[in-house]
Design a protein around this nucleic acid. Sequence first.
DNA 1: CTGTTAGCGCATTCAG
DNA 2: CTGAATGCGCTAACAG
Lengths: 315, 315
Amino acid sequence: MQNRLTIKDIARLSGVGKSTVSRVLNNESGVSQHTRERVEAVVNQHGFSPSRSARAMRGQSDKVVAIIVSRLDSRSENLAVQTMLPAFYAQGYDPIMMESQFSTERVEEHLQMLSRRNVDGIVLFGFTGVTQELLAVWQSSLVLLARDANGISSVCYDDEGAIRILMENLYARGHRYISFLGVPHCDITTGKRRHDAYLAFCQQHHLEPRSVLPGLGMKQGYEHVAQVLSPNTTALLCATDSLALGASKYLQEQRIDNLQLASVGNTPLITFLHPEIITVDPGYAQAGRQAAAQLIDQINDRASPRQIVVPARLV
Amino acid sequence: MQNRLTIKDIARLSGVGKSTVSRVLNNESGVSQHTRERVEAVVNQHGFSPSRSARAMRGQSDKVVAIIVSRLDSRSENLAVQTMLPAFYAQGYDPIMMESQFSTERVEEHLQMLSRRNVDGIVLFGFTGVTQELLAVWQSSLVLLARDANGISSVCYDDEGAIRILMENLYARGHRYISFLGVPHCDITTGKRRHDAYLAFCQQHHLEPRSVLPGLGMKQGYEHVAQVLSPNTTALLCATDSLALGASKYLQEQRIDNLQLASVGNTPLITFLHPEIITVDPGYAQAGRQAAAQLIDQINDRASPRQIVVPARLV
DNA sequence: CTGTTAGCGCATTCAG
DNA sequence: CTGAATGCGCTAACAG
């Protein structure tokens, strides 16, 4: 990259002082309409844009945020990141990506590196093991996704709501023997909350609950569905799309095709493979948007940490 | 973020001049062992790290690269990015992410933004429509993935090799009626090259080719497999995992289970759903590593643009 | 070998 | 309303 123009050049070219150019660039008041227009003309004409680094050094903020996903190939996180990126770019923030791979040590390493790098903020996709003391330092410049923690911002999915919607739907369709395939309770959100919501609905409607909580992989779904199937089971509710995928493989192999599937996830894959499945969209896209917005607000001191829950929606 | 230490503080704390600290930080020669150690001690003790922005301003390089994926939820690209990230971080580069969504206009926008931001380099996942004139300006600081273009660096997959390996394998297993499900030729690599390799093998072994090239989505696979199935077909070769996924859905619905499936992709999903499938790993992981390495070498003028092909491997 | 000096491009006083 | 001067943290060129 060759010699870029500087604010000084623009000043010379438009016959004003450097500071005037600076004022125009930052939309500051105190510049006559006439001068402003002339400077803007020169700026546009040369496609000038001020040096990030110089600005950062002066300011404090390098306008860089980090997004720490658990895994790059997580469908749900992809959907959230997809809406997050444009939101950050629109505000002039460069998002750098990191992968935690569900390891708290990795998160710690990344956080440390980010603190050195002086990033403005962080969006962290939470998982079991990510505790608030780990994040305490970042409190004011971090948004946790899919998990909540005391004192720090978070954007969570409405686990109870998602399950309730699905159960109501299944119930309305006449199903009375609905089994549940879920995730262990050590996973608070996807595990405990969704399972509890299932149990609550069953109790409220005098249904006999029947559930197993093997984990969140396809494989677990495949290997453990059998345990919740009884002769009178008519519907199967899965806590995640991955579980549903695994379960569906088993069902197909066993030629069981009279079971109504339902799951929370709404990822494109499951919808393609099973158009007849009933799914709830936890609101990944909205969560991404909100997380970005909240983080930016916090960075600019326009908001304090707060817990956000995005609504689930039947599709 | 509170007041961070500066190089000046470290200088004062260790009783030397600023430039000496700078020399130590940059591992420059011309510093006595004794002084170096003392400075390093102070640096470590305070966990000091120099300001990126200040460095960038002085040096030109902000040590930032961009990764432009086509879609965040592309399995293959995920696998490549997964190895790329650590490679960049290891060399002190911050990778910022962008999504092209297969739109050349988006690529153009992003490229323009990146030129303003003065990034050091770019990894771009290519697709049909990405031409060399678009990239010409970046020539020396761009690595194209999965596609090649004149004069610019690229890391490609061995499309011919991948197909040949699979065909040889199928042939060796006794299959003589092998159908092909592929992608239109307007997609040079995944489309034309793979199809041509299939045709070449057929001709060479006097097999009757039978193929259809609907596209690269699951849906296309699902809707068009039927066209290549004849009573004597014993094997089906798919140009991508997505196609295989779509095809397999159709096969399952039609209760056709005497067909040997093969595909190039090796994504975890297909292997889970169809353990019996024969797949070739195009080398996504290695491609990511290589792309990062090549880009870094180019940035540091340790390499000129070159075309790399990663080998395919039967799994 | 080491300290001093002078900018890099910008935002921010401070005078006009 | 506007321009000149100052310094952010760092590296490079220059003296000791």
